[in-house]
Amino acid sequence: MSQVYNETSVSPLDLIAIGEAIVIIDVRKPAARSSSGLEVPGSVWRHPFDAVNWAGAFKGRRVVVYCVHGHEVSRAVRGLLEDSGIEARLIEGGFEAWRAAGLPVVPVELSDG
């Protein structure tokens, strides 16, 4: 998908090019996030299975979520956010696509979330 920001997803390179205020949320499961030890710079981690409780904090903001590969976890969270009235997309291919594109990563702050 080559559109910069389509209905459900955005490529890692297109996300960088957008240049607008977008909240990037890491919704990888705790074990996957911890074993990676890395995250997208500036992203915030939220537990994917608790999205119903934290979604409201992002009302009125454009949100992009990512999991490991951009499949079930981020798709489920994106759907819940959209159902809550929050404009949400996912990073195509997830964190692994971000890394494969050679984009910057930073160490996970294990104390957040």
Rank of each mutant, 00 (worst) to 15 (best):
K29Q: 08
A31T: 08
I25C: 08
A100S: 09
A21M: 01
G19P: 04
A101D: 05
V23A: 02
V105Y: 10
D83R: 15
V52L: 09
V52P: 07
Y66H: 14
M1W: 13
R28E: 07
V108Y: 07
V108W: 03
F58S: 14
G70H: 13
D14G: 12
S111M: 03
L81F: 07
P104Q: 00
A55S: 15
I16N: 04
Q3V: 15
V4R: 11
G93A: 09
R89Q: 06
V77T: 14
A97Q: 05
A51Y: 02
I18W: 15
A17K: 11
G102M: 04
E96Y: 11
G60N: 08
S36T: 02
R89H: 11
R33Y: 13
V10R: 15
A32C: 05
R89N: 07
I25Y: 04
A17T: 03
H69V: 12
V68G: 05
H69N: 01
S36R: 03
A51G: 10
K29C: 01
F95E: 01
V105C: 09
A76T: 13
E109W: 09
R61M: 03
F58M: 12
D50Y: 12
P104E: 00
A31R: 01
S9V: 02
S111E: 08
S74F: 11
L13Y: 00
E109K: 12
D26H: 07
K59G: 09
V40Y: 04
V52N: 12
I91H: 13
V68W: 01
L81M: 11
P104S: 03
C67A: 10
M1Y: 14
R75V: 07
V106N: 07
V77L: 14
V77A: 14
I86F: 06
V10P: 04
Q3C: 13
V4S: 15
H69K: 06
S11Q: 08
S11H: 04
E39A: 12
K29A: 11
G42Y: 07
G93H: 11
S84R: 13
A51H: 09
H69M: 01
G85C: 13
L38C: 01
L103C: 05
L38R: 11
I22F: 07
S35T: 00
L81I: 12
I91P: 07
L103R: 04
I24F: 05
Q3R: 15
S35V: 00
S43Y: 09
G19D: 08
A88Y: 08
G93L: 05
V108I: 01
A55T: 13
P12H: 05
A97G: 04
S84T: 15
E96F: 11
A31V: 10
Q3D: 15
I16Y: 05
D14C: 03
A32T: 08
V64S: 03
S84L: 10
F49K: 13
V106W: 01
